[in-house]
Write a protein that binds this DNA or RNA. Sequence first.
DNA 1: ACGTTGACTCCTA
DNA 2: CTAGGAGCCAACG
Length: 125
Amino acid sequence: MNRSAWDGMIEIEDTFVEKVYEQVARIPFGKISTYGKIGELAGYPGAAREVGVAMSRVPEKSDLPCHRVVNKNGTLAPGHAFGGKEKQRKLLLQEGITFREDGLIYIEKHMWPDESGGEQLSLFA
DNA sequence: ACGTTGACTCCTA
DNA sequence: CTAGGAGCCAACG
């Protein structure tokens, strides 16, 4: 088709960033993931830093749930996103994410994908 | 091709 | 908690 058909469309780029966006978009409601894990899922293990950069490049109009991506420590972004950590914390709270008293997220509780033993997926009955 | 940069992660102090 | 340093990797000028 002509390029006119792509008018206004984002160019299809098979880049690292593209795949990262896909993985982030797959994070289910009420779950969170880490930069490193997202990069790993995207096929770029160890590229946690670039995942962060990719997030910063996300257009505001995008529906990407970037607030569900946190660093492994359980802390939120320094504040570049969402207009501050407080806002991100609120977004996560609305999704049922629980925080510790020190403000850190229970990573292990809401981590996605859930790779813990697989006791949940084992049930078929 | 090279040097910088960065919403990372791990370590030490 | 903060402050460095090192390793890591892709995007960008």
